[in-house]
């Protein structure tokens, strides 16, 4: 895996992405959403060192949504007055197409911002930063353990599925047969995971997980005072801008 060119601490990048999402939702204009997509997300994704992966995930997630939006609102939009094409029960309206455009750019910007931040991020660095910033240890554990466990569980589920098939499990088109397959895979999977969890619980307990003293992180803190200050300033700026946008501008 190519190491990405790191610019900021993962927490700063996540904050930046989240604040841009808020701005996109506040301004709620397809031109702004498109501008964010082209001027912020695109350059960030290209320079992240994982542009290919981001592009694939973005395409798989956002592509179908855009298509559905176009079909759903392009054809069925009872509020639309300007009918461009009448197809009986369905009608293509200008308002429907505009709504699909504004929703589509917003969704694309929303997904693009978060995916770029997350897929180019080093999760263990984020967890170390959270530990250094004294976030709740249980939260940091749950985040780290879930991220580590998810691929393992999927892998184990696939293996159990193969084993059950070898023992004669046949999945037909009947929904009941599929449901039975789900239970037959779920039973050994969950029993194994629960026993593992019991062991892990005792191990953590023995290492003082329930204590109240600050935890020590084995990783150095990559967060800086400047970045911490910048995060708070950015947050304050977005809050002030949003208040002005909704209240000050109208009044």
């Amino acid at each position: 895996m190519r190491v990405r060119r790191r610019i900021f601490n993962p927490l700063t990048e996540l904050t930046l992405a989240a604040l841009f999402v808020v701005l996109v939702l506040v301004i709620n204009n397809w031109r702004f959403s498109l501008a964010v997509l082209l001027l912020v997300v695109f350059p960030a994704a290209v320079t992240s060192g994982r542009a290919g992966r981001i592009a694939v995930v973005f395409g798989v997630l956002v592509g179908p949504m855009l298509l559905f939006l176009l079909l759903l609102h392009g054809l069925f939009f009872p509020e639309g007055a300007t009918v461009l094409l009448d197809l009986g029960i369905a009608a293509v309206t200008a308002e429907g197409l505009l709504f699909a455009l504004s929703m589509g750019t917003r969704i694309a910007a929303f997904a693009g911002l978060l995916l770029t931040a997350v897929l180019s991020m080093d999760v263990s660095e984020l967890l170390a930063t959270l530990t250094h910033r004294r976030w709740n240890r249980k939260l940091v554990f749950v985040l780290g353990a879930a991220l580590g466990l998810a691929p393992l569980v999927s892998e184990r589920a696939t293996e159990i599925m193969k084993a059950q098939r070898a023992r004669g499990l046949v999945v037909t088109r009947n929904p009941l047969s599929k449901l039975r397959a789900l239970v037959m895979v779920g039973r050994p999977l969950i029993a194994g995971l629960l026993i593992d969890a019991g062991d892990r619980s005792r191990t953590l307990e023995a290492r003082g997980f329930a204590g109240t003293v600050p935890r020590t992180s084995y990783r150095a803190d990559t967060d800086t005072t400047v970045q911490r200050t910048v995060r708070w300033v950015m947050l304050a700026a977005v809050v002030v801008f949003s208040i002005w946008w909704y209240i000050g501008r109208a009044g």
């Binding site: 554990f141 749950v142 879930a146 998810a150 569980v153 789900l182 895979v185 995971l193 629960l194 329930a210």
Partner: peptide, 27 residues
């Protein structure tokens, strides 16, 4: 409790993998 906290990541991972499994079974 620690026991409940340890159970949570397991639940989260199960949500994700069952979601994927349902997709692959065509449910």
């Amino acid at each position: 409790t620690t026991q409940a906290v340890v159970l949570m990541p397991l639940g989260i991972a199960l949500n994700i993998s069952f979601g994927q499994l349902a997709g692959s079974l065509g449910l």
